[in-house]
């Protein structure tokens, strides 16, 4: 499913709490059909074990596909990234995370999981596998590190959906993308306000026509790939 590397310091300093949160996570993961046998030997949180025969190997290249399927797999890629990130954020709350913040992070996690699972089901047999992810650059116990990563993901997500809209052929899928992007924008504004209250729509994301940022897949994927170990082939996506 997902492989993540936690920084050593984060693992050591938060070990006790992580054991609790891991148990909680296992409950959730169990329902997702993960292999519990493998989890018993799991030494680090975030090392989730693959479903045999479904996961990409280290050298496999995952082709996102073409047309609307390709765009949906592209969105599925980004939602896998976000959902996994917030799952780790919630199971390892950063130092100083307030109860209210924790509640809203759980909301965000569940929205992203809902998005991820939606795309998985909508794509059916056309869905790419679960990608191997890498959050080793994030210190999950450090507020600034987590919030900066969250802000980057949310702003990237908003720009990705905005940029993908014109590449979608089906009105139904365009509407679905519209339903999701405004929720990502709500997240983005909230995370930005946690970092610097009032920066919800500052000039780094909104231009002087009052327009948000949009990015094409070719601009988004190189940024997202920082956190994705599985090799992706996006060459058949509409552009």
């Amino acid at each position: 499913m997902l492989n993540t590397n936690m920084p050593g310091t984060a693992i050591d300093s938060g070990e006790k709490r992580q054991q609790h949160s891991r148990r909680k996570f296992l409950t959730m993961a169990g329902t997702a059909g993960l292999l519990t046998a493998g989890l018993a030997s799991c030494q680090k949180i975030g090392q989730w074990f693959p479903i045999p025969g479904k996961d990409p190997g280290d050298n496999d290249v995952v082709d996102l596909g073409s047309g609307d399927i390709g765009i949906l797999n592209y969105a599925y890629t980004l939602e896998q990234l976000e959902a996994a990130f917030y799952t780790l954020v919630c199971s390892n709350p950063f130092n100083g995370c307030t109860a209210y913040e924790r509640k809203l992070f759980q909301d965000i996690r569940d929205h992203e999981i809902a998005h991820r699972e939606f795309f998985k089901n909508a794509l059916g047999s056309n869905a790419i596998p679960s990608l191997k992810l890498d959050f080793s650059s994030v210190n999950f116990l450090n507020r600034s590190s987590v919030l900066a990563t969250a802000k980057a993901f949310e702003d990237l997500g908003v720009s990705a959906y905005n940029g993908a809209g014109s590449l979608i052929a089906s009105g139904d899928y365009l509407l679905l993308a519209g339903k999701i992007v405004s929720v990502e924008a709500r997240h983005a504004a909230y995370i930005r306000d946690l970092i610097d209250y009032g920066s919800f729509a500052d000039s780094t994301v909104v231009d002087n026509n009052g327009l948000d940022t949009s990015r094409k897949p070719a601009e988004v994927l190189p940024i997202a790939k920082t956190y994705i170990r599985t090799k992706l082939d996006a060459s058949h996506l509409p552009s």
């Binding site: 992007v181 729509a201 940022t213």
Partner: peptide, 9 residues
Amino acid sequence: LNIHSVEAR
């Protein structure tokens, strides 16, 4: 779409 997401922010 770029206006839409600004309204959501």
